[in-house]
């Protein structure tokens, strides 16, 4: 093949042909297919877990929802009665503290619909403090679990400091 000469359309067409030939051999790597099919399976599993099939019609969904709500009401009433019976003479106990988490925004905002990844890392409280983040656990613990929320572009959007 000769080098490209000015205004040579034929040469460009020839190069396009070569490029097309090269490109024809290229397919998406197998791991992409595996990831896509895994995403499909994960989506299907979530439908199965929730008990609703995608092919359910509206009527079926309505009756299932109605049945679930009725069951919920019956359960709530039963629990309320049981609770009243048990609470007689017993002072109310202090509610246990739910583990709290603080979200610190460190990067740009998370775009609507952006698929973020959460990467959990273990950090020393002193290191967290050096980043300007104080853990409520103070220096009592050796390490603190930190969830780093990473955007689609690989840039950290936020960190979440758990207990």
């Amino acid at each position: 093949m000769k080098p490209l000469e000015p205004s040579d359309d034929e040469k460009l067409t020839d190069l396009f042909e070569c490029l097309r030939e090269d490109e024809a051999q290229i397919e998406a790597p197998a791991h992409v297919r595996s990831a896509v099919m895994a995403a499909w399976d994960a989506q299907r599993d979530s439908y199965v877990v929730s008990g609703f099939s995608r092919t359910d019609n509206n009527k079926t969904v309505f009756w299932r929802s109605a049945a679930a709500m009725a069951a919920g009401v019956v359960l709530a009433v039963t629990l309320a009665r049981l609770g009243r019976e048990l609470q007689v003479g017993i002072p109310p106990a202090a509610a246990p503290q739910a583990p709290s988490a603080t979200l610190h925004l460190v990067g740009g905002p998370i775009a609507e619909g952006e698929a973020v990844r959460v990467v959990r890392v273990s950090m020393a409280p002193a290191m967290l403090a050096s980043l300007g983040v104080r853990s409520t656990a103070g220096d009592l613990v050796e390490s603190v679990d930190v969830d780093v929320i990473v955007g689609e572009d690989g840039v950290a959007r936020a960190i979440r400091v758990g207990m």
Binding site: E23, I26, E27, A28, V32, R33, V36, M37, W40, D41, R44, Y47, S53, R54, T55
Partner: peptide, 21 residues
């Protein structure tokens, strides 16, 4: 759209190459 995995896989096989390229 009806949830057929085989159909989705066939679509992927048919079109993923051109999308990738």
């Amino acid at each position: 759209a009806a949830g057929n995995r085989t159909a989705f896989a066939a679509l992927y096989l048919r079109h993923s190459g051109s999308v990738y390229r």
